[in-house]
Design a protein around this nucleic acid. Structure first.
Ligand code: FES
Ligand code: FES
Lengths: 134, 134
DNA sequence: GACAAATGGTACCTATCTGGTATCATTACT
DNA sequence: AGTAATGATACCAGATAGGTACCATTTGTC
């Protein structure tokens, strides 16, 4: 079970690379070379980041992506939200149905506490922090 | 993403029920009635618990299951280990391959810290604790 | 205007994981 | 012998994650 999934991880790397790049515009081709990923896959991630307002894009010749926000304003949690639909560690085991046991679920409260900690930690991480410690 | 999966959750409920039961031996039929689960499915979980030495079983007429350990000696983490193969929140995103980025992975360290906390919390939970707070 | 270089959008595929079923063999008591 | 229980194991199905394919659109250069 992974806390951080591929899309999120790739997004982080991509953003860090763009942030560190000299270029005005970074293209998918550049990212492919740097991150060693299939370009179509990378592109989809970039598009999602663009839609989310994290990147700005320019089409056509010499086009590409650049940051739309300062690294310090991009939070890991945003990316998790975007690519993983957020975190819900206590998601009830009775999918689709209303849980008949939530009230009596012996572990729910405990897991909720853990989840709170995890969220607090994650919310403290932004991309500027990750840049430094790399 | 669920921290606790169905098998684990059911196992907890089953064990708590057996622990609270007056009967010498609790059968799958009893559990089915109590937990409202398909019996074959429940049975497989019970068998796994038996193999793991958490339950003792008796076959044949009036057979069933009973605890092989005191609730205080059964840890939630054991069940997670048993049914979910443990927890590895930092599992590298590059499956099957050796990760070429682990050294430079910007989020690995952070997630590792979170994982440590989660493990510590989970390791402190045993079934006796869960019985009380229910 | 034609062409090439780039992204936008969307539908689809595939492997793995999770949850659950089915079947038959074995044991134990009456 | 018969019945009530577990042991063992193979199988199936839906959901999720990871990844691909395809075509449309925009932008700059010649
Ligand atoms: S089952 Fe609904 S919360 Fe544990
Ligand atoms: S990729 Fe191997 S740890 Fe982040």
């Amino acid at each position: 079970m992974r806390l951080i999934q591929s899309h999120t991880d790739y997004a982080v790397r991509a953003i860090l690379f763009i942030a560190a790049s000299e270029k005005e515009m970074v293209s998918s081709a550049d990212l492919e070379a740097e991150l060693d990923l299939p370009r179509p896959f990378m592109r989809r991630i970039m598009q999602d980041l663009q839609k989310a307002g994290i990147l700005k894009s320019l089409r056509g010749y010499q086009g590409g992506f650049q940051l739309a926000k300062a690294p310090a304003e991009i939070f890991l949690m945003d990316l998790i939200e975007l690519f993983q639909g957020g975190l819900d560690l206590t998601e009830c085991i009775f999918r689709k149905k209303v849980c008949p046991n939530c009230k009596t679920c012996p572990i729910r409260r405990r897991v909720k506490k853990i989840e709170n900690y995890v969220l607090r930690e994650l919310q403290g991480i932004n991309l500027a922090v990750l840049m430094q410690e790399k």
